[in-house]
Deep mutational scan, measured.
Amino acid sequence: CHSECLGNCSQPDDPTKCVACRNFYLDGRCVETCPPPYYHFQDWRCVNFSFCQDLHHKCKNSRRQGCHQYVIHNNKCIPECPSGYTMNSSNLLCTPCLGPCPKVCHLLEGEKTIDSVTSAQELRGCTVINGSLIINIRGGNNLAAELEANLGLIEEISGYLKIRRSYALVSLSFFRKLRLIRGETLEIGNYSFYALDNQNLRQLWDWSKHNLTITQGKLFFHYNPKLCLSEIHKMEEVSGTKGRQERNDIALKTNGDQASCENELLKFSYIRTSFDKILLRWEPYWPPDFRDLLGFMLFYKEAPYQNVTEFDGQDACGSNSWTVVDIDPPLRSNDPKSQNHPGWLMRGLKPWTQYAIFVKTLVTFSDERRTYGAKSDIIYVQTDATNPSVPLDPISVSNSSSQIILKWKPPSDPNGNITHYLVFWERQAEDSELFELDYCLKGLKLPSRTWSPPFESEDSQKHNQSEYEDSAGECCSCPKTDSQILKELEESSFRKTFEDYLHNVVFVPRKT
């Protein structure tokens, strides 16, 4: 048989008469490798580009789960590009990614509803959504962080984005990388972005840091009482949809009607710091009717980097990364020049730590249904340095008659930039024990000054392991946590139920 035959053949030295091919099969003959313009397919066939392209389009058009959109890589027609490569849609070739590779997620039936953290986790790592997304989240724990972890990498949506009755959302900033909504599939009414009845939605994105392009379709905003109209108009300008909307697409009466839409800028007039305090004062603000001013709200939190936005980490279910302080308005003076500047002394802060701070007014709604208010920009203030805590785990070892090696770990709280350490030492008198000992005694162990690591005695271990207080009263049991108490109650309830079950099964009433 021919060298490319495997198993047997019907005619000697003829690659077209093989029972099976050793390498690849091409047009009725066995070959060692697939010549151009053919590609290896499933490690035994040679196919042309049209064959591989037909497989790709067949799966793409069917949208069946589990099928493969075949691509070409290293002269092979394979189910998908290997790690580190992405497909070129024009020629199906796998090309190296520039940075992290995109991950295209194809949605069944063309859309997916995100109504819980669990459903959001199914899209973790996706960068391109081939379909439409509907966000409908009523509640949950730590929602802002969970949504950002699972949806934060999405850069492109081919269909539309719909935010509907998501009472738990305060902001859409968890879509931190969303840059493009194509609108290839539109919501009824030709809408590519749809926001309806979101009672706590206050911000779409921080438009000073976020760009969003909507290729096709219109915007729809109705019944978002805490979303200011200025935020919607800003989205029109940034996304390129200005002029597409009709009169009733953006409701003037049901958007922002319960919001404090600040239209003035508060400026800080005085800032002073110490290692654990920050004193702030800002310019006074009074609405047209000074009785509408209820006070100020001061927001602050630790910020290692200057990239904080107002609604980071917030949701309507209680999660809030900001510390909020309510401040009463100052006494009002008739003389504008003698107006008191409101302020606040922030206490209990960490030394040498940068804080993000902003302040906003708290006002009631005027009778004319106009909203007044003022808010400052987010500023960054760093507390002063102070003395560091003591170095940890000092170790001293003498390696000769004239040297001592000293080692330690950095302090747990540096409280500033540590530039150097101060080492103090003092000579001590020799131990009298060394002169009084009889060095001729056998088995004498000389006193040693070398360091030995501390260890816990058996008594201390027994005390720590004991669940009861000892007789001397030195140790006591740790208080039980809520989960331990709940577990004990469940076990007790189970024992009672099981005992009742045994009584009912074992003891049967005697027939009379």
Rank of each mutant, 00 (worst) to 15 (best):
103 K>F: 05
103 K>E: 08
104 V>R: 03
105 C>G: 00
106 H>E: 08
109 E>W: 14
110 G>V: 05
112 K>L: 11
113 T>G: 06
113 T>K: 12
117 V>F: 12
119 S>N: 12
119 S>V: 10
120 A>T: 11
123 L>A: 03
123 L>Y: 10
123 L>V: 11
126 C>K: 01
126 C>P: 01
127 T>E: 00
132 S>N: 11
139 G>V: 15
143 L>W: 15
146 E>Y: 15
148 E>R: 10
150 N>D: 06
152 G>W: 11
156 E>K: 06
157 I>E: 01
158 S>Q: 08
158 S>V: 07
159 G>L: 00
159 G>P: 00
162 K>H: 13
163 I>L: 04
163 I>K: 02
164 R>H: 15
165 R>I: 14
171 S>V: 02
172 L>P: 02
174 F>G: 02
175 F>P: 00
176 R>F: 04
178 L>M: 06
178 L>V: 04
186 L>H: 14
191 Y>T: 10
193 F>D: 01
194 Y>W: 12
195 A>N: 11
197 D>L: 15
197 D>T: 12
198 N>I: 02
200 N>T: 02
203 Q>M: 11
211 N>C: 11
214 I>Y: 02
214 I>H: 02
216 Q>F: 07
219 L>G: 04
222 H>L: 15
225 P>S: 07
225 P>R: 03
226 K>W: 15
226 K>M: 09
228 C>F: 03
232 I>V: 04
233 H>V: 09
239 S>L: 11
240 G>V: 01
242 K>D: 14
244 R>A: 05
245 Q>E: 13
245 Q>C: 07
246 E>M: 05
246 E>T: 09
250 I>S: 06
251 A>G: 08
251 A>D: 04
252 L>C: 14
253 K>S: 10
254 T>K: 11
256 G>Q: 04
256 G>T: 01
257 D>W: 11
258 Q>M: 10
258 Q>A: 15
261 C>A: 07
261 C>D: 02
263 N>K: 10
265 L>T: 10
266 L>V: 03
267 K>R: 09
273 T>D: 01
273 T>P: 03
279 L>H: 15
284 P>C: 04
287 P>C: 13
288 P>L: 07
288 P>V: 15
291 R>S: 12
291 R>V: 10
292 D>P: 04
292 D>S: 06
293 L>T: 03
294 L>N: 12
294 L>A: 05
294 L>K: 13
295 G>T: 05
300 Y>S: 06
300 Y>P: 00
301 K>I: 11
302 E>K: 09
305 Y>C: 07
307 N>P: 09
310 E>W: 06
311 F>N: 14
313 G>K: 14
314 Q>R: 12
317 C>F: 15
317 C>S: 10
317 C>I: 12
319 S>N: 13
323 T>N: 14
325 V>W: 15
326 D>H: 01
328 D>H: 04
330 P>F: 12
331 L>D: 13
331 L>Q: 13
333 S>A: 05
333 S>M: 08
335 D>C: 04
335 D>H: 12
335 D>P: 03
337 K>T: 12
339 Q>V: 09
339 Q>E: 02
340 N>L: 11
341 H>E: 11
341 H>K: 08
344 W>R: 07
345 L>T: 11
347 R>G: 03
349 L>E: 00
349 L>W: 00
352 W>M: 14
352 W>F: 08
363 V>N: 13
364 T>S: 15
365 F>A: 04
366 S>H: 15
367 D>P: 06
367 D>R: 08
371 T>H: 10
371 T>W: 13
374 A>V: 04
375 K>L: 12
378 I>E: 01
378 I>M: 03
379 I>M: 13
379 I>Q: 15
381 V>Q: 13
383 T>G: 00
386 T>S: 07
387 N>T: 06
390 V>T: 14
391 P>A: 09
393 D>P: 04
394 P>L: 11
394 P>G: 06
396 S>I: 01
398 S>L: 03
400 S>Q: 13
404 I>L: 01
405 I>S: 13
409 K>P: 05
410 P>E: 13
